[in-house]
Design a protein around this nucleic acid. Structure first.
Lengths: 144, 144
DNA sequence: TATAAAGTATATATATATAATAGAGATTAT
DNA sequence: ATAATCTCTATTATATATATATACTTTATA
């Protein structure tokens, strides 16, 4: 399961995508509209800022806004920022490869290929899921 | 990522599948051959026993053995026993549905369908991965 | 029938990660 | 000058994962 931090990050970014192009949005407004504890959201937005996904304006009339187009931000990127690897086993992670501690002989491991396939499929799906895609889907669902 | 408990459970079951039909195997032997802390493995095997996947014989010459054919035990079943739900969001879990805490209107949520598709695909892959399938793969890899 | 081999049961300890909060500090529009 | 904002660092609370300890019960067999 995704951590709350990741879920909050996704919700905040979807919110910023909705307001894309309208200038900076207050932390407080995001927190209220998305049901996120304000102080917790602060650290999350800082992380997203360090990753270059959002930018901030300090001082009065400040706030946060998307630093990339909604088409360019996808769920795989967001999840990787906050959660442990998407892969089920350390030996099939993309960025953080580690040998499985109990694995005797990795070359004859009959499990690895299964989890590798799961990871690849999952990551591909998450990469297709951009903020723009999510908003498009929401618009469709609201019409029904 | 899978918990160690789950990884240990998978390794122990693969071991029992290898010895399928040869009578009970000692906890100690499984622990040594699979690099699993013995006492920890005890509780894991108890869980597997309660779930009907293995059986045990007490007393001298006792041990554990598979209660189902290697073709009948798959990774989805094992993972579900020990880990939190496979799904990324509480609202798309198979057995433990819960509303996402921040979700305003679940009917117009643009994210849900993505994670539902990921979960379905993942579970299907894991169901195909039986102990028999894993042993078959290992045999192939060892020949190379 | 005593003994050693084995699983059973329950409790506890330790470490780590997650989630959230607090408060002082820095920046900026007006 | 002041109020509105974001920034930075520290702390706390809670839960979960991982592992260990100890006493108990069952069974084969010498």
């Amino acid at each position: 399961m995704l951590s709350k931090k990741t879920r909050y990050a996704i919700a905040a970014l979807v919110k910023l995508a909705k307001e894309y192009g309208k200038g900076p949005i207050l932390i407080k407004d995001i927190a209220e509209s998305e049901n996120i504890p304000g102080k917790f959201l602060e650290t999350i937005l800082q992380n997203l800022k360090n990753a270059g996904i959002v930018k901030s304006v300090r001082g009065k009339n400040g706030g946060y806004y998307l630093n990339q187009k909604p088409e360019q931000v996808n769920l795989a990127t967001i999840i990787r920022l906050f959660d442990p690897p998407i892969a089920f086993l350390p030996c099939v992670t993309y960025l953080y490869y580690e040998k499985c501690d109990m694995c005797r002989d990795e070359n004859s491991c009959g499990i690895k290929h299964i989890f590798k396939e799961v990871r690849d499929t999952t990551v591909n799906m998450l990469k297709k899921a951009t903020l723009a895609e999510i908003l498009r889907e929401e618009a469709i669902l609201k019409k029904k």
